[in-house]
Design a binder for these strands. Sequence first.
DNA 1: AACGTTTGTAACAATTTTGTAGCAAACCTG
DNA 2: CAGGTTTGCTACAAAATTGTTACAAACGTT
Lengths: 226, 226
Amino acid sequence: MKKARILIVDDEEDLCEILKFNLEGEGFEVDEAYSAEDAITKRLDKYDLLLLDVMMGKMSGFKLAEKIRKERGSTIPIIFLTAKDTKNDTLTGFSIGADDYISKPFSIKEVVARVNAVLNRTTGKYAGEQIINVEGMEFDLNKKKLIIDNKSIYLTRKEFEILQLLIENQGRIFSREEVLNYVCKYETVVTTRTVDVNIARIRKKMGKYGKFVRSRTGYGYYFDIQ
Amino acid sequence: MKKARILIVDDEEDLCEILKFNLEGEGFEVDEAYSAEDAITKRLDKYDLLLLDVMMGKMSGFKLAEKIRKERGSTIPIIFLTAKDTKNDTLTGFSIGADDYISKPFSIKEVVARVNAVLNRTTGKYAGEQIINVEGMEFDLNKKKLIIDNKSIYLTRKEFEILQLLIENQGRIFSREEVLNYVCKYETVVTTRTVDVNIARIRKKMGKYGKFVRSRTGYGYYFDIQ
DNA sequence: AACGTTTGTAACAATTTTGTAGCAAACCTG
DNA sequence: CAGGTTTGCTACAAAATTGTTACAAACGTT
């Protein structure tokens, strides 16, 4: 699964570092900007989520957010970080919404939890990309297709399942029986030779990458890039 | 569509900013006033809805509301925000003619939902905008319709939900089971083939854009503009 | 209850996928 | 290298999936 990319915008560099370290530990890709002006120079469409400090030097997090939403028309989810206002701690009550709102001081655990929640909500439980990359070839589990040289290669269900089995167990050899058992679990019995035909079809569709789908006479098929 | 204009009156400036940001994100036009006195100086008839904090410096939200209703004879819908959730306050609010009543701490989502609800109830014609644009085709989440070549295409609820699922997860393939599960979560069991019929109806209504709703035999349906 | 609308089902046609058979090519073993 | 075995490939047929239509049931409104 593709990692979500997060941009932290906060003038407290120490805080940025702590957040970055912890979010990276959770498997996210994290960039930092130490001011709103700095953030604007970045290609924001690269990111899946923004963590914005509300109180920063010249331009506040709100202004930045407004700019991003209005001028760039971006719908990127935003979580605001704000210093806890002792006068009204009602702000701590903000939790759910189109965006989110976390008051300082906050626990790292809390931030991670909210980040995950927002990403799940905004990208939908379906949207997490699931792409296996092999030698410049993309194997997209959600879109059920290969991307080779920027071209989409559509595999049928059986083809896709066989290739998935082989790619997810790179190097391991599967006998025709094993492949059939994996692909046609509860279906009527078919000749083991059908595997050959499907392999041939897969190889053909894969073009120059077809050679990575290999056979060992007497054993079966496997996927390997060597 | 005319945007609804909202005035937020609250002395917590941060809270105002958050509400403003999120309501604007929903397509509303939003102004702020940080005190009742400040609000009075504004031309209130410009607005379609007031969000009033009950607890503010000198003049409370209730007083302000009374003033507006009695002295100006305005019937503008009002939603009160309050820190306390006591029955007394609630009753006071409704006797003045509050349209809704939200206790802090509250979620942004909740506020937005209530704002939409009140506006729909009172004017019927306003709502925050939520429009997805794809290839010159507008997909209006609030009005549950498509706009194609400046013409409104009205989708039924099921049709709309299916299309929304597909469009919001562009490229990803959904099996009939997944689509059904998403659209008919709590309903009686139906044939997976009903999805086909709904897809057909959606395609028909979408005219030249219908082709973007695609199928992959063995997998299901997906939306893609390629 | 009567009406229009939405949604589901069944049946058939059209399309795509999948399996089989047969032959050619490659592989293995002695 | 000769023979049997395994694998690659192609065309065709069978099976499965999808598109489409007409009709019926369910729903909501007046």
